[in-house]
């Protein structure tokens, strides 16, 4: 109850403060869609708040060679080394060359930097855990963070991977553990509103598609002969195979599995981000409607945001669990058919 009052007080305080803030930069109408899409999408620099921007390195490769520059050298329509950001057209918001063509762009964008942060965090955490086990051996029970991580790792290894795949699960255990912790770290960092997090990685179709492709490889490339037989020559009446109806359906099924994995993770995380951003935008939409309205909507917005963030915390774990479990189940199905 005390904590609740505390939160309520902070909400009240924020609704007092925010209108004053907002009044300073009036005039330009607030574009909700643009704000939300800016947060969801990728960008060449990392926008933190107001004028605080972290410039990131851009790397483009073309036939002429590699060009590198910082993102603040091409902001606001500036041209650097013949490259600029397209204002409109097919490549709007992307780096193009003087002819308006798109080079091979491997810039360290916001999402790429977030990806590298996620990878670093994962490596540091898991390798330091491994170091703990190397140092202490198996006769000492861990406590604190190591113990908590051990519980999660053991849960994934035994209750997801072993339970879904069964015999011979060890071959896939490390891959699925990596997938689980990768998605979990992305999701959790995505929930942070400021710098080390905030990018929308698992809500990006490139990332989820790559993850799904790895699970496609894990499902299909290690499957026994019977799996391929069940796809191309399944145990069904001959007339279903003669006109290759069943094989076609089965063959499509091979690709719908990773596709559904891609879309599920992508849509869930994207939707969560959209809802939280929309609720936050509510404050700024109601700003022209007067202080009373704005203040009360701010309270509503903050409370809903609080609720949504708790929900997203659950979703972060849930989606990592679902992706891992479904991949493990598909692998198990391929092996035990």
């Amino acid at each position: 109850m005390k904590a609740f009052l505390h939160i309520l007080f902070i909400c009240m305080l924020s609704c007092l403060a925010l209108p004053c803030f907002a009044e300073e930069k009036e005039e330009e109408a607030f574009d909700v869609a643009a704000t939300i899409f800016e947060h969801l999408g990728d960008s060449y620099e990392w926008h933190i708040a107001g004028d605080c921007v972290i410039p990131l390195p851009c790397i483009v490769i073309e036939k002429g060679g590699v060009a590198t520059f910082m993102s603040d050298e091409i902001e606001d329509g500036k041209v650097c080394k013949g490259y600029h950001i397209a204002e409109e057209g097919e490549y709007e918001g992307k780096i193009v060359n003087a002819d308006g063509e798109r080079p091979f762009d491997i810039s360290i964008t916001k999402n790429v930097l977030e990806l590298l942060i996620v990878c670093t965090v994962m490596c540091v955490v898991i390798l330091s855990l491994a170091a703990w086990y190397r140092k202490h051996g198996h006769k000492k029970a861990p406590g604190g963070f190591v113990g908590a991580m051990e519980a999660v790792i053991d849960f994934v290894d035994k209750d997801i991977v072993k339970a879904s795949i069964g015999h011979g699960y060890e071959k896939f255990s490390y891959y699925l553990l990596t997938i689980f912790f990768f998605i979990l770290t992305c999701n959790l960092l995505g929930l942070l509103p400021v710098f080390p997090g905030g990018a929308n990685l698992t809500g990006n179709i490139t990332v989820t598609a790559t993850l799904a492709i790895t699970s496609f490889i894990a499902i299909n490339f290690f499957a026994p002969k019977e799996y391929y037989k069940s796809i191309f020559w399944p145990d069904v009446p001959l007339f279903l195979k003669a006109i290759p109806l069943m094989p076609v359906i089965e063959f499509i099924g091979v690709f719908t599995k990773p596709f559904s994995l891609t879309i599920r993770l992508f849509a869930n995380i994207l939707a969560g981000h959209v809802v939280i951003l929309s609720l936050t935008c509510l404050i700024f939409i109601t700003e022209p409607m007067g202080e009373m309205m704005n203040g009360s909507m701010t309270v509503v917005s903050v409370l809903f945001c609080l609720f949504m963030n708790c929900l997203e915390l659950l979703v972060a774990f849930l989606q990592a669990y679902v992706f891992t479990m479904l991949t493990a189940t598909f692998i198990g199905m391929a092996h035990n058919e």
Partner: peptide
């Protein structure tokens, strides 16, 4: 980065932990 992380963790990370458990 996923390949690097996977190879790194599958070689030096998870086997140690899972083995110890």
């Amino acid at each position: 980065s996923f390949a690097v992380v996977f190879l790194l963790l599958a070689k030096f990370g998870f086997p140690v932990i899972v083995g110890a458990i």
